[in-house]
Structures are given as structure tokens and as C-alpha cells.
Amino acid sequence: MRFRPRCDQRANCGVLFFVFLVPSTVVNFLWYASSNVSPNARKPLPSAILWQTSVDAYNMSLLNEVTDFTTLVDKTDFRFLINNRRCDDAQDIFLVIFIHSAPDHFQKRRAIRKTWGQERHLVDDPLRIVFMVGEVQGRDDVQKALERENYIHRDMVQGNFLDTYKNLTYKHVMGLKWVTYFCRQAKYIFKTDDDIFVDIFQLVTYLKGSSGLAPPRGLIMCFLIRNPYVKRSQRSKWRVSFKEYPGKYYPPYCAGWGIIMSPDVVFNLYLQSTQVPYFWVDDVHVSGTLAQRAGVNHVDFTNKLSVTEEEIFEWLQSPKLSRPYLFGHPDAEVDTIYALWNKTYWYYKRTGSRR
């Protein structure tokens, strides 16, 4: 991987002492407009025959070729309201990242695009990023803004389910579905949220150093939550009734803000999602129940993912230029994302190190 970072930031990051200029919106718009087809243009789906002979990890013959594309878990009228086949332009993609976002999180998506999510940072290890969102109800202004955003950036995927807490499993499985149908050449798949910072250079170096250019089969690596109680409190937004989940404990599952998977795991989780009743706590359902049914054993990545807000701010405020954390803490503010990126970029620029 040849390091060629470029830094974009806002002027009010505060913690740091340098400013980098960003390309103008006009230039970005012209570039995207010239390199992408009309948003209404639809490419035909691959044929079932090609599916069976394309990539070993994805045995598409196990899916119902007549109904599967329009099915999402128990939803039989599924369709992509917005879709971008972002992997069609490359035979080899090292990492594809699908990011859970909410329709009105415009600033969070902008921060990722202008910091760690810029695909051009990785010259020799192609990266693709897509944002997963659900449908907006009664907010035509938000939907139109989403469509304008997608027209410029071409990195949105929207499904026809309401974007709510109770529908997060649809969003998670839609990410697996999108990779299964549109990005099967990716060697690694990373699922995260739009409030997380990622040192993308260190992540790629870590994956290549620990697993090589291609991951081992059966890889699912995450901050592992073991034997968690089912939340029954009326005050919890994650409260689950005994009817919804009768057990006292969930199976071990991944914190949803950082899950690294091999292609076969993505496909097997997606395949299991077509056979298991819907459960709305997506992290539990996908990385717990479906993973258990697929016979997948988690790799605990806690030592890399576990970092507190206090540790992050201590690193930001330190005058020493020390190695960045691989990930930021969950629920990070937009300003924190920019500040983390700026110091991370400066670290690699000054040291030339990616380890």
C-alpha cells in the first residue's frame, strides 16, 4: 500500500495548528457528474448462471433467483430506492465499507467523505464506501436532499423500509445483500456507523499483516459482547419483550460499530437472514443469532476497538505526535472526527509510518 494521504478539514477543529485546503465543491461535482451515469439509469442484474461461476464465497445458486432480489428478511416487496454499483469499475477491491447512516445525517456523511472515507487515499489497495439508509416518511425535503447528495457523491444505498430503530435489522441485512449482489470481488468487508472514526491506513496495514491479501474463511472480527442479558427495562429503547425473545441471554454478538468480515461470512449471514424470523435488535440478530446458525466463530477485536472518549481527547490534546488509535470511540461528534483525522494525517505525513 503506497501512502498518499490528502487532508481536508474545517477551520474550527481547534485542537490542531495546521490547515489544509480542500478541493472545491464545484470540482467534485464536475468529476462525479462526468464519471457517473444518470441516477435513473439501471444496469441489468447479473444472470443466475454468472452467479454460480463468479466468486467461490458466494454460491448464488443457494438463493431463489426469482424472488430473492425483491426479498429482505420477511419483506417481499423490497427494492432499492437509491442504489450505486460502486464496485463495477474494479476487478480487485481490498476493502468495502458499508456504513449505517440516518437520512438526515448529512453532516456526519460529509465528515467521513472529507476525512478517513476518501477512497483516493489508498492507491494500491482499492477501497469502496457506501452509506446505508432507510426511507423517509412525510419529509419530502429530506428525501430530495438525499437524492441531491447522491447525485454528487454516488455512494448512497437506500431501501424501501422506514429508517427507525425497529428497522435496523433491515438496514444491516441490506448491507449484506448489497455486497452479495454488487461487490463480491471485495476481499474484506467492514460494517460500521457514521459516528465512528477509522484510521483507514492502519486498518488496511493491520488486515494485510494479520491475514494477508485475502482473509481466512469464516472471519468475523469485532468488539465481542459475551453472554449479555436481554434488556427488559421499560426505560430502555432496546427493551425486548419475552414474546420477542424468550431467552435470558443473547448469544455472543458484535458491537455493530465495527465488524470485519470475510466474503463467505457475508454471504452465509445473508443466506441465514432469508431463513430466520425477523428480530429488530440488528447486532444481536445478524452477528449473534445468524452467525451462530452459520457456525461462525467470532474473533475478539476488543483490544483494538476498545477506546474511551477520555483517551481520545487526551491523545488529541497531547503535544506529542504519537501513533493514532485504530478507531475512535462510538457516538463521536463531527468535530471530533475532523480533529482525529487532522492529527492522524499529520502523524503519517511527518513520520511516513503506517505501523
Rank of each mutant, 00 (worst) to 15 (best):
T71H: 06
Q272E: 12
V281N: 00
A102Y: 10
P216N: 07
I260R: 02
I129M: 15
K304W: 15
G209V: 03
S353P: 03
R109I: 06
E311W: 13
Q143C: 06
C183V: 13
R128Q: 11
P44L: 14
E310K: 15
P277G: 05
I225S: 07
Q9V: 04
N36Y: 08
R113L: 05
Y325N: 09
R85L: 09
M1E: 01
S47Y: 05
S24N: 03
E244T: 02
C7G: 01
V204S: 03
D124S: 15
F106W: 06
I259D: 00
D104W: 12
P126Q: 08
R139G: 02
E333T: 10
D335A: 07
V198I: 15
F197P: 02
D68P: 00
P246V: 01
R148H: 05
F78I: 08
G256L: 02
L219S: 03
V22S: 04
D199G: 04
D68H: 12
C254Q: 01
Q137P: 05
C13N: 03
T169A: 15
L321E: 13
P216M: 04
F131L: 12
H329W: 01
H100T: 11
H298T: 11
H172W: 12
Y165S: 10
T169V: 11
S306M: 15
D92Y: 11
N40Y: 11
V266Y: 01
R10I: 10
S233I: 04
F29R: 03
T302M: 12
R148D: 04
K114I: 00
K177W: 12
P215E: 07
P216W: 04
K114E: 15
R109L: 04
Q272M: 08
F313M: 14
V198A: 14
H121A: 08
R42T: 08
R10W: 03
Q143L: 10
K114W: 05
L224E: 14
K171L: 15
A339H: 03
F18I: 01
K248T: 02
M1A: 04
P324I: 06
Q91W: 11
S273A: 12
A291T: 02
L340R: 10
S236I: 06
F106G: 04
H172C: 15
N59V: 14
H153N: 11
C222F: 10
A11T: 04
S47R: 07
V73T: 13
G256C: 07
L305A: 14
R350P: 07
Q292H: 04
N227L: 15
M174Q: 14
P23G: 04
K248W: 01
I93A: 10
V142W: 12
A339F: 02
F98N: 09
P263E: 07
D195K: 10
N40I: 03
K208V: 05
N342V: 15
P39Q: 07
L271T: 00
K43C: 08
L50R: 09
D92P: 05
W315C: 13
V96H: 07
Y188A: 11
D104I: 02
Y229D: 14
W116T: 01
R113W: 07
T351P: 09
E147Y: 10
R2L: 03
L81T: 08
A214H: 12
R86C: 13
V173R: 09
L146V: 06
V266P: 02
H100Y: 03
I260W: 08
V240L: 05
D282V: 01
L207D: 02
R355K: 15
V276R: 03
N64R: 12
R86F: 10
P252R: 01
I129F: 14
M132W: 10
V123H: 11
A214I: 06
Y253C: 01
Q185M: 09
T76A: 14
